[in-house]
């Protein structure tokens, strides 16, 4: 059996993923996470001296902290199973990636295990995060120069 034949066979036999269902699930889970974050931002704005613009920093920190706790307790795994990308794309997915890698490599020691592997998954997030931030800033600069949006 050659490669092409095998690929055809594999496609025929393997079950089709319920695409629409997954999309809806991801939308709901991701939306719920963002809704919670919105409430946290509102909390920081109501009870502390944060404006709409400055409240985003402590909100992100709080969301990462919560997701790290949930990862440690093993709850985030279940959220990820249901939500898929809805649990991975928001900033909580970043906290999950950091802590799950740390837990996985704990047995190899704290320096060479945890220390060198903690950013095994999240390292790519940082690299592409910085890169996409650069791209977005570029696009926004152009849009501002054209007068479509304001800073």
């Amino acid at each position: 059996m050659d490669k092409e034949k095998y690929a055809k066979l594999e496609q025929k036999i393997s079950p089709k993923p319920p695409l629409l269902k997954n999309v809806i699930k991801a939308f709901l889970v991701g939306g719920t996470i963002c809704l919670i974050a919105q409430f946290i931002a509102l909390f920081y704005m109501t009870f502390f001296n944060f404006t709409e613009r400055t409240a985003s920093n402590p909100t992100v920190a709080t969301m990462i902290f919560i997701s790290m706790l949930l990862t440690g307790f093993g709850v985030y795994k279940k959220i990820g199973q249901v939500g898929g990308a809805g649990g991975a794309v928001p900033i909580t997915g970043f906290g999950n990636a950091v802590v799950s890698a740390a837990i996985e490599h704990k047995s190899e020691g704290f320096v060479l295990g945890v220390g060198s592997n903690i950013f095994k998954l999240a390292g790519s997030v940082i690299v592409f995060g910085v890169f996409s931030a650069f791209l977005v800033a570029l696009v926004k600069t152009i849009l501002v120069k054209m007068g479509v949006v304001s800073w």
Binding site: M45, T46, T51, R53, A55
Partner: peptide, 12 residues
């Protein structure tokens, strides 16, 4: 001296 802000914190 006029100050206008669209931030919801300033509104509340």
């Amino acid at each position: 001296s006029v100050f206008v802000s669209a931030d919801s914190k300033i509104l509340t």
